[in-house]
């Protein structure tokens, strides 16, 4: 029925759809399904999905690395964090590695300014970053299958 306005559910539904996808994005089919489940129209779901930076409608890497570039992190050197990541992964912000494992994105505040600079990998937040620490994290992730 087209009456129920379950807008609250829609974010949870989209999140689930994205998490279940190997490439960390919401497929068109899932958007349509979400619309049906949430009692929203296609345009309404599309509006929500593109409003939050959390969601992507394009395929992304297995690991989405989101580096904070808000004030505190910026001051604490997020620029160099980007540099290290770009060099290590051989991609630019917004891109995905050729093997489909990593995507690098820029976001605003992750809510752990006391541990700036910080980034988030999928849903895990990592703070007090140094180039050394980043390389270690990447090594760990690369080991995982």
């Amino acid at each position: 029925m087209k009456l129920r306005n379950k807008e609250k559910d829609v974010i949870a539904l989209l999140n689930k759809a994205q998490r279940e996808n190997k490439h960390n994005y919401i497929t068109e089919d899932k958007l349509k399904l979400t619309a049906q489940e949430a009692g929203l129209s296609y345009s309404e779901v599309y509006g929500v999905a593109t409003f939050y930076s959390l969601f992507s409608l394009k395929p992304r890497g297995e690991y989405v690395i989101q580096v904070c570039d808000s004030g505190p992190c910026h001051l604490m050197g997020s620029k160099s964090i980007f540099k290290v990541l770009e060099k290590e992964l051989k991609i630019k912000v917004g891109e995905t590695t050729a093997d489909g494992r990593f995507t690098l994105e820029e976001v605003s505040c992750l809510g752990i300014c006391n541990e700036a600079p910080a980034m988030m990998i999928n849903e895990k937040v990592c703070g007090n970053l140094t180039p050394q620490k980043i390389r270690e994290i990447l090594r760990e992730l690369r080991k995982k299958k």
Partner: peptide
Amino acid sequence: QRVLDFAARGSGTFLISGLDQ
């Protein structure tokens, strides 16, 4: 019909129909 809505945010906001179709 709820065909139209806005996509994205801030200065990038734009009018869409359906799934930006």
